Amino acid sequence: MDLRSGLTDAAGLSAATVVLVEGDSDRHAIEAVARRHGRSLHGVAVVPMGGVTNIRHFVELFHDRRLAGLYDAAEERFIRRALADGGLGPARSSAELAGLGFHACRADLEDELIRALGTDTVEEVMAAVGDLRSFRLFQRQPAQRDRPLARQLRRFIGTRAGRKSHYATLLADALDPARTPPPLDRLLALL
């Protein structure tokens, strides 16, 4: 999705609460976890921004709505700057950003889901959809051999177009609601 089409699509939304996320896989995961929790997202729009660097445009577009979001911890500076410039107040820490409704994932949401499920469960999900053989071949690649299993899983999930979104839903559906990753759990508590 390019920025212009993303903004055009988002401009027509009438939801009172807008959850800003980096991409479609994050939207799919949030929707699946909300469903697993029996939570309705009525009145909430989960909006993929096509990358965190686009956040300023979406904050400007939705300045009159209740905003929340998830972000990768390494991208925090973009979130801080955009929220401050958008008049939502300065946030000097992750805790202050959380107070504004924006919650950090360590690496990304897929990383959070993999840690919450455990690598054995993620491999079971892969086996159920017929991807375990491809993953085993991927693990043999020289660049992957010395990586920890969780990092291999995360990298594999991101290697093919559409796979991240597909696995975001699969992993979220496999997740016991009691083991929801903390940033996602805190976000859902706001909605």
Rank of each mutant, 00 (worst) to 15 (best):
G87C: 10
T159L: 03
P48G: 02
A172R: 10
Q144G: 03
G23P: 04
V47R: 01
D173T: 08
S134N: 06
V19T: 03
F156S: 09
A161D: 05
A73Y: 05
R80K: 14
I114C: 07
A174R: 13
F156Y: 15
L188G: 14
L153Q: 10
H28G: 01
R160Y: 05
S40V: 06
A174S: 13
P183F: 15
P90Y: 04
R133A: 11
H166R: 15
E124Q: 11
L109G: 05
A104R: 13
V59T: 08
A82I: 10
M126R: 06
M1T: 04
L117V: 01
R80G: 04
H57D: 08
A10E: 04
R136A: 12
H63R: 11
R179F: 13
R4E: 06
R140K: 12
E75K: 12
V122K: 07
A150D: 09
L13D: 07
A84G: 10
A116H: 07
G51L: 06
R27G: 01
L132W: 01
S94Y: 12
T180H: 13
A116C: 09
E96N: 13
P148Y: 04
R133S: 09
R80A: 02
C105S: 14
V125A: 03
H37F: 04
T53S: 07
V33R: 08
L20A: 05
S5G: 00
A84I: 02
D185Q: 15
D26H: 05
I30V: 09
L187K: 15
D24A: 13
P182L: 15
P148H: 03
R77I: 10
V21Y: 01
D108R: 04
V21N: 00
V52Y: 00
R39P: 00
R27P: 02
A189F: 08
V44C: 01
V18T: 04
P90C: 02
G86M: 12
V52S: 01
R80V: 04
P181W: 15
V46L: 08
H63F: 05
L171Q: 08
A32H: 00
G86D: 09
L184R: 14
R147D: 08
L137H: 11
D9Q: 09
Q141S: 07
H103R: 05
M126Q: 00
M1Y: 00
L67G: 05
R136Y: 01
F78C: 05
V122F: 09
L184T: 10
K164N: 04
Q144R: 15
S14E: 11
R160D: 10
R66T: 12
P90H: 12
D111A: 06
E31T: 06
G38C: 00
L83I: 13
A84F: 06
L188R: 15
R39Y: 01
R66C: 09
E110M: 11
N54L: 07
E123N: 01
E124A: 10
E110I: 08
F78Y: 10
M49D: 00
R115A: 03
L100V: 14
R35T: 03
F102R: 10
Y71L: 01
A16D: 09
N54S: 08
A128T: 01
Q144I: 06
I157N: 08
V129G: 03
T17W: 02
A174P: 13
G38L: 03
P183Y: 14
A95Y: 08
T121A: 11
D108N: 15
T119G: 01
D120T: 14
T169R: 15
S93V: 14
V19L: 05
R106D: 15
P183L: 14
D72C: 06
R115H: 08
S93L: 12
H57K: 03
A29G: 01
G101W: 12
